[in-house]
Design a protein around this nucleic acid. Structure first.
Length: 883
DNA sequence: GTGTTGCATGGAT
DNA sequence: AATCCATGCAACA
């Protein structure tokens, strides 16, 4: 408790005065006391520490009763206020005076459920003594205080301070003596829990606490540790309800939270150290006893421990002032997220937190989502192996509303005192599950690495520090590509690939390789509509493609890196001539400008806009007025007007998301025109130009057309260039020819030729990842041809596979595998792919007399090389042209 | 033929 | 070995 150092720097980071004399300040989570210089110690003891040193920091709030200002954002004043149920805070003095809280029931009134009869005073006392730790967010609490340093880590959220001296500061409480605190505690702490929840922060550089330093109060009569492992990711403090809580002055900390032995420790004898450790409590509350099996079991598997995020909290808190008690969470399996609409509930969780049900039919359960929308699910069970299998039925709309998909996490919390369940969601990359740990985040070639953490960090510290890199926003994890060559966009597909790795530890993880349905590694067909896949795929960012030649044609190839699936964007050029992309926030639908090379995760949101921090919140205005955006981006035209409409509609209409959902679910096999799995008809609009849909005019300058033109132009230019090289023309000739071609292409691409374009584009082009689209200027492309080109672009001919056939793409594709469907044989000799139709198509479509057209025609007449092969390349389509 | 429901199965823990 | 639970699948609507 004392330092061996004779001279110490004041622990107060605002002071740092070195002194040989030091005095104890607050107790740190290590159990030691903060060593303060005289001045700081005095300030601390007088209760003026925050006033003196934190006056300029956030977190100051007024006592709802007396108006006294209290700093709520640091450990020093942590014990000096109480969070009120209705919001706001009270200073300890007022709290003591006015304290007359009614208990926060852990569960709604008995009438709401079947077996409420056994709700008794006795059991209620159990609630207040051992129930789930209620907590709420106090925004000001999230702010880092000055005193926090590496050794004095930030507490992401601090909850329901009920007089428990978390850090043992009661000894020197300026505002309340230990006695007072105890009294206070006895009086009002129904929940008597106080948690500090740096979620998953201990295994990384930002961990609030060194595992060895993890302080846990040795509090008597605390509930047993429920979670047998990986508890290191969290810590909380739980005190017994009305027992005389004794703080461990010695700072001896219980570490049993992470020991397997904790499993066998009888109720009431173990130090609770996890704010999630409440499953048994409610069970006990309802039943008045701990059941030996199932209901009442004290162990909640780590994977079900709630790790509610600040984002979620904020959402919930936005409509509710209630105390939020995280109950449990579950990673959505493919089944859960599928269309069946049944969420299999972990038995223990269901029995612990949901109302008891005697009949398989169960009962309807009202659940609020994080937006405050109320849903009613059927909570029921199936008999199963002499046991029960609990399910929530009818969750699909809610899941979709929350835009969750397999791999994401649903969280269940409870609002108090209403007792209502709150269902939240978290994207799979947000927070690693407890049994994943940090290590799971970076594993193999699919490591999820944070990107631009600090700038984007909008999450509470405890969440954000889950990643190794600082301040990573949960939503901005990005997977490393297979080749780990560069950071690529976070994609569903990669998540899918990563999942099995990440999930290797537990079956609770979804999308595991074990999954029969998603036997990615076992080669089971996982088919997506070609259209779907193409619309979502993008070349990996910042990865220079290798250029390979196909008999005269250069094509970009991402040898070691699969295309990634990212957020669709619309390329554009800003007023300064700089190439940019416009991307729409998943949440607010505002368009944000991002760099041209930015590869965005599928669920990109404003908070991930690290390029323009002024527009990194959904509340920030769009950079340009809609009208201007429409001018700049005609493609937005169609959608901007729909945006608000969409915004107001059920959120399950997000086409992009649905497609990503599809990728995530992978078991879905779509057709050429849409995702058959999507329940929403709007998701079935043609993703890629197809035979159906409205035609685009030649002059159309929409994203797709622009991209088509651009891409085709690039391809053709390269091709021509190579052709010229090959035929050994002089440099000047080549230059001339290139210019000619360029000119042709310019004309083709930019003139408002009368030639109508047969591209048929989806209405909602904003959803199209235009970067994936390859095509031609005013060349008339049938959808099939366009698709062929797209095939070429992303799967290059060597890697073309039968998966491309039938308009579907197999995500089992193994890049390294060359198969017979490749237009290039293993020897590298191009197969003789001369699809008559394609040749004809090109012959017809290339501008007559144009350089490129002639060139191609010329090449086409040659044997096996040149234009014909170019077209062959382009015509990688299994339909009827191979062999 | 398609979607839903309820139970069975079997891999994972 | 017991249990959980993701998924399969038959029966049914």
């Amino acid at each position: 408790m004392s330092s061996s150092l004779s001279k110490k720097v004041c622990f107060n980071s605002n002071c740092k005065e070195a002194s040989e004399k030091w005095r104890n300040g607050w107790r740190r989570r290590t159990g030691e006391y903060a060593h303060l210089c005289d001045r700081c110690a005095s300030a601390y003891e007088e209760g003026k520490f925050c006033e003196a040193f934190h006056s300029s920091t956030s977190g100051w709030r007024c006592c709802e009763s007396c108006g006294k200002q209290i700093h709520c954002g640091c450990i020093v004043s942590f014990h000096m206020f109480v969070l009120l149920d209705a919001g706001g805070i009270e200073c300890l003095t007022c709290a003591r005076k006015s304290f007359g809280l009614t208990p926060n029931p852990a569960w709604p009134p008995p009438s709401q459920f079947e077996r409420r009869k056994d709700f008794s005073v006795k059991t209620f006392s159990s609630i207040i003594g051992s129930g789930p730790v209620p907590w709420r967010i106090a925004p000001s609490l999230f702010k880092e205080s000055n005193i926090q340093s590496d050794t004095q880590p930030i507490m992401p959220f601090e909850i329901d301070v009920c007089g428990i001296d978390l850090f043992g500061t009661s000894e020197r409480l300026p505002a309340a003596s230990p006695d007072e605190k105890q009294e206070f505690s006895d009086e009002r702490c129904f929940n008597e829990k106080l948690r500090v929840g740096p979620i998953d922060t201990f295994q990384n550089g930002h961990s609030a606490l060194n595992p060895k330093e993890r302080p846990f109060l040795s509090i008597n009569s605390i509930q047993p540790t429920i979670f047998p492992k990986n508890n290191s990711s969290n810590f909380s403090l739980t005190s017994a309800s009305s027992s005389k809580t004794e703080l461990d002055d010695t700072g001896q900390l219980s570490a049993t939270f992470s020991t397997p032995q904790a499993l066998s420790i009888p109720v009431g004898k173990q130090v609770g150290s996890h704010y999630r450790m409440d499953s048994c409590d409610e069970t006990r509350v309802r039943n008045g006893k701990v059941q030996g099996d199932g209901r009442g079991r004290n162990q909640l598997l780590p994977r079900y421990r709630p790790q509610i995020t600040e984002e979620e909290l904020l959402k919930i808190s936005s409509y509710s002032k209630s105390v939020i008690t995280p109950l449990f969470e579950k990673t959505l399996s493919a089944s859960d997220a599928g269309r069946i609409g049944r969420l299999v509930l972990p038995k223990k969780c269901a029995e612990a937190y949901f109302p008891p049900i005697a009949q398989p039919e169960g009962l309807p359960l009202e659940v609020l989502d994080v937006k405050g929308k109320e849903w009613v699910f059927q909570f029921r069970f199936w008999p199963n192996n002499n046991s029960r299998m609990y399910v929530l039925e009818g969750i699909t709309p809610c899941i979709q509303s929350l835009r969750l998909q397999a791999g994401d996490v649903v969280t269940f919390s409870r609002l108090k005192p209403e007792g209502k369940l709150v269902m939240g969601g978290r994207k799979s990359s947000s927070v690693p599950s407890p049994d994943q740990g940090d290590g799971a985040l970076i594993k193999g070639n699919n490591a999820f690495i944070p990107e631009n953490c600090q700038a984007k960090n909008k999450c509470m510290e405890g969440v954000s520090v889950n990643c190794h890199t600082k301040g990573k926003s949960p939503s901005s994890f990005q997977p490393i590509s297979h080749a780990s060559k560069a950071d690529t966009g976070s994609t569903s597909s990669e998540i899918l690939e990563a999942k099995p790795l990440n999930s290797s530890k537990g079956k609770g993880s979804i999308l595991v390789s074990k999954s029969k349905r998603l036997r990615i590694e076992k080669g089971i067909d996982l088919k997506l509509s070609m259209d779907e896949a193409q619309g979502l795929m993008r070349p990996p960012a910042k990865i220079a493609p290798s250029v390979f030649l196909v008999e005269g044609c250069e094509f970009e190839e991402f040898e070691d890196t699969m295309p990634v699936i990212g957020r669709p964007t619309i390329p554009a050029t800003d007023p300064f001539g700089e190439k940019i992309q416009w991307v729409q926030c998943e949440d607010c639908f505002k368009w944000r400008k991002v760099p041209e090379d930015a590869l965005l995760p599928s669920g990109w949101i404003c908070s991930e806009n690290v390029w323009d921090l002024d527009r990194s919140r959904c509340s920030d205005a769009e950079e340009l007025a809609i009208e201007k955006l429409e001018d700049i981006l005609p493609a937005i035209n169609n959608v901007s007007s729909k945006r608000r409409e969409i915004t107001t509609m059920d959120s399950n209409v997000f086409v992009t998301q649905e497609r990503l959902d599809t990728l995530a679910n992978l078991g879905i096999q779509g057709d050429d025109h849409g995702i058959s799995a999507s329940p929403d008809s709007r998701s079935k609009h043609p993703w890629f130009p197809s035979e159906k849909g409205s035609k685009h005019k030649q002059s159309c300058d929409c994203a797709i057309c622009s991209s088509l033109k651009h891409r085709f132009r690039t391809l053709m230019e390269r091709c021509v260039k190579h052709q010229l090289d090959e035929v050994g023309e002089s440099a000047s000739q080549k230059l001339q020819m290139e210019r000619c071609v360029k000119h042709q292409l310019d004309e083709v691409g930019e003139s408002a030729s009368q030639k109508s374009q047969q591209l048929q584009l989806p209405e909602q082009v904003h959803n199209v990842d235009t970067s994936t689209v390859i095509g031609a200027g005013n060349i008339t492309l049938t959808p099939r041809e366009v698709r062929k080109i797209a095939c070429l672009d992303y799967h290059n001919r060597r890697k073309s596979s039968p998966l491309l056939l039938k308009g579907q793409i197999d995500l089992n594709i193994q890049p390294e595998r060359e198969d017979d469907f490749s237009p290039v044989s293993e020897s590298g000799t191009p197969k003789q792919l001369h699809p008559p139709a394609t040749e004809k198509f090109f012959m017809q479509q290339m501008p007559s007399g144009s350089g490129i057209g002639n060139l191609i025609r010329t090449r086409m007449t040659q044997d096996g090389i040149g234009g014909a092969n170019l077209i062959s390349c382009l015509a990688v389509d299994g339909g009827n042209q191979e062999n």
